[in-house]
């Protein structure tokens, strides 16, 4: 593209083409955040579950503090190469803010449960919050697997209150597989193999 004068029709065509190219751009590996946080949560749950049951000591629940460390570590390890340009849209900002609020809320209730005498059904609450976040994200980006996965997690959440303590982590893991890991892989595949 050069610094040349345009005809009126050429100008309109150029404006339309640039807006459409930008709007329909496909970001490779878009499912990375879902996969990083999905796998980090599943792994941490397995470790905490194994430790609490194996050593019969609830203090092993403090291992939940590994989750944010593991999540950010996976995000860092899965980061993309810097060779591709980056544009930030209004939708990116909305999704970022949704997860900022959801993440802070989840961290707040988790810390309350770990460090105060307040007893909350934490796995129920976290599954509900993350299910809402995933479903909202799916609706914003019009991605049905995330909407379905998020909704499934919201439906699964009250079941954690019905089953015994032993099976709660298993349902929690199923919830994260359904709402984050499966949609994350589908989203990655879709963004890396565009139809056109």
């Amino acid at each position: 593209m050069e610094d040349r004068k345009l005809e009126a029709a050429e100008s309109l065509e150029l404006i339309g083409r640039m807006i459409e190219n930008t709007r329909s751009r496909i970001v490779r590996n878009s499912g990375r955040p879902l996969l990083a946080w999905g796998y980090a949560t599943v792994l941490t749950t397995l470790v905490v579950w194994g430790a609490v049951v194996g050593f019969q000591d609830p203090r092993w629940n403090f291992l939940w503090l590994l989750l944010p460390v593991l999540g950010w570590l996976l995000m860092w390890l899965m980061r993309g190469k810097r060779t591709e340009g980056e544009a930030r849209t209004f939708v990116d900002r909305v999704i970022g803010n949704v997860w900022f609020v959801m993440g802070l809320t989840a961290m707040f209730v988790s810390l309350l449960t770990l460090f105060t005498p307040i007893r909350l059904p934490i796995l129920f609450i976290i599954l509900l919050i993350m299910g809402m976040g995933t479903a909202v994200t799916g609706l914003i980006i019009r991605f049905t697997p995330a909407v379905a996965g998020g909704t499934a997690a919201i439906v699964l959440a009250p079941l954690t209150m019905l089953v015994g303590n032993m099976w709660q982590p298993l349902l929690f893991i199923v919830g994260f597989v359904v709402m984050m890991i499966v949609p994350g892989h589908i989203l990655n595949h879709t963004s890396n193999h565009p139809e056109r």
């Binding site: 610094d3 040349r4 345009l6 150029l14 404006i15 807006i19 930008t22 340009g85 209004f90």
Partner: peptide
């Protein structure tokens, strides 16, 4: 009314920000 400058503004009108490489 110049091809490249109009393209740049048309890109930026649809996003909140874009880096040099993207443009």
């Amino acid at each position: 009314h110049s091809e490249l400058r109009l393209a740049v503004v048309s890109i930026l009108i649809g996003v909140e920000s874009a880096d040099f490489v993207f443009i």
